[in-house]
Deep mutational scan, measured.
Amino acid sequence: MDGTRTSLDIEEYSDTEVQKNQVLTLEEWQDKWVNGKTAFHQEQGHQLLKKHLDTFLKGKSGLRVFFPLCGKAVEMKWFADRGHSVVGVEISELGIQEFFTEQNLSYSEEPITEIPGTKVFKSSSGNISLYCCSIFDLPRTNIGKFDMIWDRGALVAINPGDRKCYADTMFSLLGKKFQYLLCVLSYDPTKHPGPPFYVPHAEIERLFGKICNIRCLEKVDAFEERHKSWGIDCLFEKLYLLTEK
């Protein structure tokens, strides 16, 4: 054995408090879109979701699917093309516009009456609605409950000090017999300040354990050449399924 860690023996890093005071403002996230600093976007979609999607959907149609901090995630069109209703929230209007443009979807925009100064973008087909606002303002819009949440790049982007508020927001959107698919990253948080932030299993239990059954479905090596600039040499991604207790 050469000592290389595999996707099945990932350790939890003990120094989980080192990132707790890290803060990125909404304006800084918007600047990332304006300046093209969106390496977190996956042009081909998320491979773990693609692998498990049909198993999760079980042939159902007409589900309501929520994408927190959606950006221009191509997976939104995957669900819409399968007959589901997609709702996303994203602070960057540019990111939302790029989604519709890159997916060749016509759309309209209208003000969100409950949140002055914000807009919702709706596909002409009517099954994709993307709200351009802070996720913490979203419950004011009465958008209803969801059958499924796809959380990739959301919890790991939320400032650590806001995670409890974020989890409570997610709980307010969950319908009966929900499936909450959650991706988190595992790396040494003493070497990279984030975002994306390190979210250990214990944190998921703390945030969601009282209401959800929590199961880790898969762990994969997600390290890429660009991650060397973070000062790390190891990065794993974990896919969790959260269901109603």
Rank of each mutant, 00 (worst) to 15 (best):
M1I: 15
M1K: 13
M1V: 10
D2C: 15
G3L: 13
T4N: 14
T4D: 13
R5I: 11
R5W: 14
T6V: 13
S7W: 11
S7I: 10
L8K: 09
L8C: 13
D9G: 12
I10Q: 14
I10L: 09
E11P: 12
E11F: 06
E12G: 07
E12T: 10
Y13C: 11
Y13A: 11
S14Q: 03
S14L: 10
D15K: 08
T16C: 01
V18Q: 06
V18E: 15
K20V: 11
N21R: 08
N21Q: 15
Q22W: 03
Q22G: 10
Q22F: 10
V23W: 10
L24H: 07
L26F: 10
E27A: 15
E27Y: 12
E27P: 06
W29E: 08
W29Y: 03
W29T: 06
W29D: 06
Q30G: 10
Q30D: 13
D31Q: 02
D31H: 09
K32F: 13
W33A: 08
V34G: 09
V34T: 14
N35D: 10
G36I: 08
K37V: 12
T38A: 09
T38P: 08
H41M: 11
H41A: 07
Q42I: 15
E43G: 10
Q44C: 13
H46E: 06
H46W: 12
L48G: 11
L48D: 06
L48E: 06
K51G: 06
H52M: 02
T55R: 02
T55V: 10
L57G: 10
L57S: 13
G59R: 08
G59Q: 12
K60P: 05
S61M: 09
L63A: 11
R64M: 02
R64L: 03
R64C: 09
F66I: 08
F66L: 08
F66D: 00
F67S: 01
P68Y: 00
P68G: 01
L69N: 09
C70R: 05
G71S: 05
A73I: 02
V74K: 02
V74H: 07
E75C: 03
M76C: 03
K77C: 15
W78P: 01
W78S: 06
F79Y: 06
A80R: 02
D81P: 00
R82N: 06
H84E: 00
S85V: 13
S85A: 12
S85E: 13
V86Q: 00
V86K: 01
V87K: 03
V87P: 00
G88F: 00
V89G: 02
I91M: 05
I91C: 08
I91L: 07
S92G: 05
E93T: 07
L94E: 13
L94V: 13
Q97R: 11
Q97M: 15
Q97G: 08
E98A: 06
E98P: 01
F99A: 02
F99Q: 01
F99E: 00
L105W: 05
S106P: 12
Y107C: 09
E109K: 14
E109W: 13
E110V: 10
E110Q: 15
P111I: 15
P111R: 13
I112N: 15
T113D: 14
E114D: 07
E114A: 15
E114T: 09
I115G: 09
T118L: 06
K119V: 04
V120C: 08
V120L: 06
V120R: 07
F121L: 07
F121R: 01
F121D: 05
K122V: 12
S124F: 09
S124I: 10
N127Y: 12
I128W: 01
I128Y: 03
S129F: 06
L130D: 00
L130P: 01
C132D: 02
C133A: 12
S134R: 06
S134F: 02
I135H: 03
I135P: 03
F136S: 04
D137R: 05
L138E: 04
P139A: 11
R140E: 10
T141S: 10
T141M: 15
I143M: 05
I143L: 13
I143Y: 02
G144V: 03
G144S: 10
K145E: 15
D147L: 00
D147K: 01
M148E: 00
I149P: 00
I149M: 10
W150K: 00
W150T: 00
R152L: 03
G153L: 13
A154T: 01
L155A: 01
L155S: 00
L155K: 00
V156G: 07
A157V: 06
I158V: 15
P160V: 03
G161H: 13
G161Y: 10
D162L: 10
D162I: 02
R163L: 06
R163F: 01
R163Q: 07
R163V: 03
C165M: 06
C165L: 11
C165V: 15
Y166A: 00
D168F: 07
D168Q: 12
D168V: 08
T169M: 13
M170T: 08
F171L: 11
L174M: 08
G175Y: 15
G175Q: 13
K176Q: 13
K176I: 09
K177I: 06
K177Q: 15
F178G: 10
Y180G: 00
Y180N: 01
Y180P: 01
L181V: 07
L182D: 00
C183G: 05
C183L: 12
L185R: 05
S186V: 07
Y187N: 15
D188S: 04
P189T: 11
K191R: 08
P193V: 04
P193Y: 15
G194R: 08
P195R: 03
P195L: 01
P195Q: 01
F197T: 04
F197G: 03
Y198V: 15
Y198G: 06
V199R: 01
V199P: 12
P200I: 07
H201Y: 13
A202M: 12
A202N: 09
E205S: 09
E205M: 05
E205V: 12
R206V: 07
L207V: 09
L207P: 02
L207C: 14
F208Y: 09
F208S: 00
F208V: 06
G209L: 06
K210C: 11
K210S: 14
I211D: 15
I211C: 14
C212G: 10
N213I: 02
N213Q: 10
I214Y: 00
R215F: 01
L217R: 02
L217Q: 08
E218D: 03
E218W: 07
V220M: 14
V220P: 03
D221W: 14
F223Q: 01
F223T: 15
E224Q: 02
E224L: 03
H227F: 04
K228W: 10
K228S: 11
W230M: 07
W230V: 04
G231C: 09
I232E: 04
I232R: 05
I232A: 08
D233G: 12
L235I: 15
F236E: 09
E237T: 00
E237N: 00
K238Q: 15
K238C: 15
L239W: 06
Y240M: 08
L242G: 02
T243G: 04
E244A: 08
E244C: 13
E244H: 06
E244D: 04
E244R: 08
K245N: 12
